[in-house]
Protein backbone atom coordinates (compact mmCIF):
# COMPACT_ATOMS: atom_id res chain seq x y z
CA UNK A 1 0.00 0.00 0.00
CA UNK A 2 2.76 2.45 0.89
CA UNK A 3 5.36 3.03 -1.80
CA UNK A 4 8.73 4.43 -0.81
CA UNK A 5 10.50 3.74 -4.10
CA UNK A 6 13.30 6.23 -4.66
CA UNK A 7 13.36 7.35 -1.02
CA UNK A 8 16.40 6.91 1.20
CA UNK A 9 15.98 6.20 4.91
CA UNK A 10 18.45 6.25 7.79
CA UNK A 11 17.51 4.05 10.75
CA UNK A 12 19.49 4.18 13.98
CA UNK A 13 19.58 1.22 16.31
CA UNK A 14 19.03 -1.05 13.31
CA UNK A 15 20.86 -3.90 15.03
CA UNK A 16 18.05 -4.17 17.58
CA UNK A 17 14.71 -5.94 17.28
CA UNK A 18 12.54 -2.91 16.63
CA UNK A 19 15.12 -1.08 14.49
CA UNK A 20 15.67 -4.15 12.35
CA UNK A 21 11.93 -4.54 11.79
CA UNK A 22 11.65 -0.86 10.84
CA UNK A 23 14.49 -1.18 8.33
CA UNK A 24 12.85 -4.27 6.82
CA UNK A 25 9.48 -2.57 6.52
CA UNK A 26 10.88 0.55 4.83
CA UNK A 27 13.05 -1.58 2.56
CA UNK A 28 10.09 -3.77 1.72
CA UNK A 29 8.19 -0.67 0.58
CA UNK A 30 10.97 0.14 -1.85
CA UNK A 31 13.19 2.49 0.16
CA UNK A 32 16.96 2.41 0.21
CA UNK A 33 18.01 1.98 3.83
CA UNK A 34 21.06 3.05 5.81
CA UNK A 35 21.48 0.76 8.80
CA UNK A 36 23.16 2.44 11.74
CA UNK A 37 24.16 1.04 15.08
CA UNK A 38 27.17 0.20 17.19
CA UNK A 39 27.30 -3.57 16.61
CA UNK A 40 28.59 -4.12 13.09
CA UNK A 41 27.98 -7.89 12.83
CA UNK A 42 24.17 -7.79 13.16
CA UNK A 43 24.07 -4.79 10.82
CA UNK A 44 26.08 -6.67 8.20
CA UNK A 45 23.81 -9.69 8.62
CA UNK A 46 20.69 -7.55 8.16
CA UNK A 47 22.17 -5.84 5.10
CA UNK A 48 22.99 -9.23 3.60
CA UNK A 49 19.44 -10.40 4.27
CA UNK A 50 17.96 -7.31 2.62
CA UNK A 51 20.28 -7.48 -0.40
CA UNK A 52 20.21 -4.46 -2.70
CA UNK A 53 19.45 -0.97 -1.40
CA UNK A 54 20.96 -1.60 2.06
CA UNK A 55 24.02 0.10 3.50
CA UNK A 56 25.78 -0.41 6.81
CA UNK A 57 26.65 2.85 8.56
CA UNK A 58 28.13 2.11 12.01
CA UNK A 59 27.99 4.99 14.48
CA UNK A 60 28.55 5.43 18.20
CA UNK A 61 25.72 7.74 19.20
CA UNK A 62 27.53 8.82 22.36
CA UNK A 63 30.24 10.41 20.17
CA UNK A 64 29.02 13.87 19.06
CA UNK A 65 31.43 14.14 16.14
CA UNK A 66 30.47 10.72 14.80
CA UNK A 67 26.77 11.64 15.08
CA UNK A 68 27.24 14.96 13.29
CA UNK A 69 29.07 13.17 10.48
CA UNK A 70 26.43 10.45 10.04
CA UNK A 71 23.89 12.31 7.82
CA UNK A 72 26.61 13.15 5.30
CA UNK A 73 27.89 9.56 5.33
CA UNK A 74 24.34 8.39 4.70
CA UNK A 75 23.91 10.78 1.78
CA UNK A 76 27.28 9.75 0.33
CA UNK A 77 26.27 6.09 0.53
CA UNK A 78 22.63 6.33 -0.57
CA UNK A 79 22.51 9.47 -2.73
CA UNK A 80 19.99 11.37 -0.59
CA UNK A 81 18.32 11.30 2.80
CA UNK A 82 14.55 11.60 2.85
CA UNK A 83 13.51 9.66 5.95
CA UNK A 84 15.18 9.71 9.37
CA UNK A 85 14.16 7.21 12.03
CA UNK A 86 15.70 7.87 15.42
CA UNK A 87 15.18 4.50 17.00
CA UNK A 88 18.37 3.87 18.96
CA UNK A 89 18.07 3.92 22.70
CA UNK A 90 19.76 2.67 25.83
CA UNK A 91 18.55 2.11 29.37
CA UNK A 92 20.44 2.49 32.61
CA UNK A 93 17.71 1.84 35.13
CA UNK A 94 18.13 2.93 38.71
CA UNK A 95 15.80 4.10 41.44
CA UNK A 96 15.76 7.86 41.37
CA UNK A 97 17.28 8.36 44.82
CA UNK A 98 20.38 6.53 43.69
CA UNK A 99 20.61 7.76 40.14
CA UNK A 100 24.08 9.07 39.36
CA UNK A 101 24.84 11.99 37.10
CA UNK A 102 26.47 9.56 34.72
CA UNK A 103 23.41 7.27 34.56
CA UNK A 104 21.29 10.30 33.82
CA UNK A 105 23.60 11.94 31.32
CA UNK A 106 24.50 8.87 29.28
CA UNK A 107 20.83 8.05 28.68
CA UNK A 108 20.00 11.66 27.78
CA UNK A 109 23.04 11.84 25.47
CA UNK A 110 22.21 8.76 23.44
CA UNK A 111 18.40 8.83 23.53
CA UNK A 112 17.74 12.55 23.17
CA UNK A 113 20.82 14.58 22.24
CA UNK A 114 21.96 12.27 19.44
CA UNK A 115 18.44 12.38 17.98
CA UNK A 116 18.59 16.18 18.10
CA UNK A 117 21.93 16.17 16.28
CA UNK A 118 20.62 13.85 13.57
CA UNK A 119 17.41 15.86 13.12
CA UNK A 120 19.52 19.00 12.79
CA UNK A 121 21.81 17.29 10.30
CA UNK A 122 19.00 16.20 7.97
CA UNK A 123 17.22 19.59 7.93
CA UNK A 124 19.29 21.05 5.12
CA UNK A 125 18.87 18.23 2.58
CA UNK A 126 15.17 17.86 3.46
CA UNK A 127 14.54 21.61 3.15
CA UNK A 128 16.22 21.61 -0.24
CA UNK A 129 14.17 18.75 -1.57
CA UNK A 130 10.95 20.11 -0.03
CA UNK A 131 10.19 16.64 1.32
CA UNK A 132 11.19 14.87 4.47
CA UNK A 133 10.03 12.50 7.15
CA UNK A 134 11.40 12.52 10.68
CA UNK A 135 10.18 9.75 12.94
CA UNK A 136 11.41 9.63 16.49
CA UNK A 137 10.83 6.47 18.48
CA UNK A 138 9.65 7.55 21.91
CA UNK A 139 8.08 5.24 24.47
CA UNK A 140 4.94 4.79 26.50
CA UNK A 141 7.02 5.62 29.58
CA UNK A 142 7.70 9.09 28.14
CA UNK A 143 4.00 9.75 28.72
CA UNK A 144 3.28 7.63 31.78
CA UNK A 145 6.60 7.50 33.65
CA UNK A 146 8.05 4.29 35.02
CA UNK A 147 9.73 3.53 38.33
CA UNK A 148 13.48 3.13 37.90
CA UNK A 149 13.46 4.94 34.58
CA UNK A 150 13.49 8.67 35.37
CA UNK A 151 16.36 9.14 32.93
CA UNK A 152 14.80 7.08 30.14
CA UNK A 153 11.32 8.58 30.63
CA UNK A 154 12.76 12.11 30.60
CA UNK A 155 14.62 11.43 27.36
CA UNK A 156 11.58 9.83 25.72
CA UNK A 157 9.28 12.68 26.82
CA UNK A 158 11.91 15.10 25.59
CA UNK A 159 11.81 13.50 22.17
CA UNK A 160 8.09 14.22 21.92
CA UNK A 161 8.51 17.91 22.77
CA UNK A 162 11.39 18.22 20.34
CA UNK A 163 9.44 16.44 17.61
CA UNK A 164 6.49 18.82 17.98
CA UNK A 165 8.75 21.89 17.86
CA UNK A 166 10.49 20.66 14.72
CA UNK A 167 7.10 19.86 13.18
CA UNK A 168 6.01 23.48 13.67
CA UNK A 169 9.14 24.90 12.13
CA UNK A 170 9.33 22.88 8.95
CA UNK A 171 5.73 21.94 8.15
CA UNK A 172 5.60 24.56 5.39
CA UNK A 173 8.52 22.84 3.66
CA UNK A 174 6.90 19.48 3.15
CA UNK A 175 8.73 17.95 6.08
CA UNK A 176 6.80 16.12 8.77
CA UNK A 177 8.07 15.17 12.21
CA UNK A 178 6.25 12.60 14.28
CA UNK A 179 6.86 10.26 17.19
CA UNK A 180 5.93 6.63 17.68
CA UNK A 181 5.54 5.53 21.29
CA UNK A 182 5.73 1.74 21.69
CA UNK A 183 4.38 -0.03 24.75
CA UNK A 184 5.77 -3.41 25.75
CA UNK A 185 7.29 -5.02 22.68
CA UNK A 186 8.61 -8.58 22.53
CA UNK A 187 12.34 -8.34 21.78
CA UNK A 188 15.53 -9.97 22.98
CA UNK A 189 15.28 -7.70 26.02
CA UNK A 190 11.83 -8.94 27.09
CA UNK A 191 12.74 -12.59 26.31
CA UNK A 192 14.82 -12.50 29.47
CA UNK A 193 11.75 -11.92 31.64
CA UNK A 194 10.33 -14.89 33.52
CA UNK A 195 6.89 -16.27 32.59
CA UNK A 196 5.60 -14.83 35.84
CA UNK A 197 6.90 -11.37 34.98
CA UNK A 198 5.45 -11.61 31.49
CA UNK A 199 2.03 -12.63 32.88
CA UNK A 200 2.04 -9.60 35.19
CA UNK A 201 2.86 -7.29 32.29
CA UNK A 202 0.21 -8.84 30.04
CA UNK A 203 -2.39 -8.38 32.77
CA UNK A 204 -1.91 -4.60 32.42
CA UNK A 205 -2.42 -4.64 28.66
CA UNK A 206 -6.00 -4.68 27.33
CA UNK A 207 -4.75 -6.61 24.28
CA UNK A 208 -3.37 -9.16 26.80
CA UNK A 209 -0.09 -9.62 24.95
CA UNK A 210 3.11 -7.83 24.12
CA UNK A 211 3.43 -6.12 20.76
CA UNK A 212 5.73 -7.25 17.99
CA UNK A 213 8.55 -5.23 16.39
CA UNK A 214 6.61 -5.51 13.12
CA UNK A 215 3.67 -3.68 14.68
CA UNK A 216 5.96 -0.75 15.51
CA UNK A 217 7.51 -0.91 12.05
CA UNK A 218 4.05 -0.66 10.47
CA UNK A 219 3.39 2.60 12.34
CA UNK A 220 6.75 3.97 11.19
CA UNK A 221 6.06 2.89 7.61
CA UNK A 222 2.77 4.78 7.63
CA UNK A 223 4.33 7.97 8.99
CA UNK A 224 7.15 7.70 6.41
CA UNK A 225 4.72 7.32 3.52
CA UNK A 226 3.55 10.06 1.13
CA UNK A 227 0.02 9.28 2.36
CA UNK A 228 0.90 10.63 5.84
CA UNK A 229 1.91 14.04 4.47
CA UNK A 230 -0.77 15.84 6.52
CA UNK A 231 0.18 14.11 9.79
CA UNK A 232 2.80 16.07 11.70
CA UNK A 233 3.64 16.72 15.33
CA UNK A 234 1.71 13.61 16.26
CA UNK A 235 2.61 10.87 18.68
CA UNK A 236 1.33 7.51 17.53
CA UNK A 237 0.88 5.24 20.56
CA UNK A 238 1.25 1.57 19.73
CA UNK A 239 0.69 -0.19 23.02
CA UNK A 240 -2.24 -2.60 22.89
CA UNK A 241 -4.34 -0.14 24.84
CA UNK A 242 -2.00 -0.09 27.85
CA UNK A 243 -2.24 3.70 27.95
CA UNK A 244 -4.93 5.38 25.87
CA UNK A 245 -3.53 8.82 25.18
Amino acid sequence: MFDLSGKCALVTGASGGIGGAIAKALHGAGATVGLSGTRVDPLEALAAELGDRAFVLPCDLSDPEAVNALPKQAIDAMGSLDILVNNAGITRDQIFMRMSDDEWQSVLDVNLTSAMRLCRGVMRPMMKSRWGRIINISSIVGATGNPGQANYAAAKAGLIGMTKSIAYEVASRGITANAVAPGFIATAMTDKLTDDQKAKINAQIPAARMGTPEEIAAAVLYLASPEAGYVTGATLHVNGGMAML
Binding site: R124, M127, K128, E169, V170, S172, R173
Partner: peptide, 9 residues
Protein backbone atom coordinates in the same frame (compact mmCIF):
# COMPACT_ATOMS: atom_id res chain seq x y z
CA UNK B 1 13.15 32.93 9.48
CA UNK B 2 13.24 29.71 7.46
CA UNK B 3 13.29 31.71 4.21
CA UNK B 4 16.43 33.48 5.39
CA UNK B 5 18.10 30.12 6.07
CA UNK B 6 17.10 28.93 2.62
CA UNK B 7 18.38 32.13 0.99
CA UNK B 8 21.75 31.57 2.65
CA UNK B 9 21.75 27.95 1.41
Amino acid sequence: SLDTVELVM
